[in-house]
């Protein structure tokens, strides 16, 4: 099952590393990743496609706990296709 995650956090040097560690450890594989720093340099915006047999909520709840992450939103790949169709 693929899921699209939209994540925002503080722009700190290790946030991406911290986040990717949690993604792997909780049993999700990254299929696509885009990271951008906001214009004022304060925030990091990520879009992330992950794949796993596990429920995406198991990952999002862990990501929400990471200090410095301010928003985690999901859009399942399937739902996204239906919406765009």
């Amino acid at each position: 099952m693929k899921s699209l995650l939209i994540i925002q956090g503080d722009n700190s040097p290790e946030l991406l590393e911290r986040l990717l560690r949690v993604v792997r450890h909780r049993g999700f594989a990254v299929q696509n990743l885009n990271a951008e720093i906001s214009k004022n340099g304060q925030a990091l915006h990520l879009t992330l496609t992950v794949c796993s047999e596990r429920k995406i909520s198991l990952l999002t709840k862990q990501l929400e706990k990471i200090f410095g992450i301010t928003k985690v939103a999901t859009l399942s790949q399937e739902a996204r296709v239906k919406v765009s169709a």
Binding site: L58, E64, K65
Partner: peptide
């Protein structure tokens, strides 16, 4: 207290 434990 930890929401990540719910339904884990």
């Amino acid at each position: 207290i930890d929401a990540a434990e719910i339904d884990k």
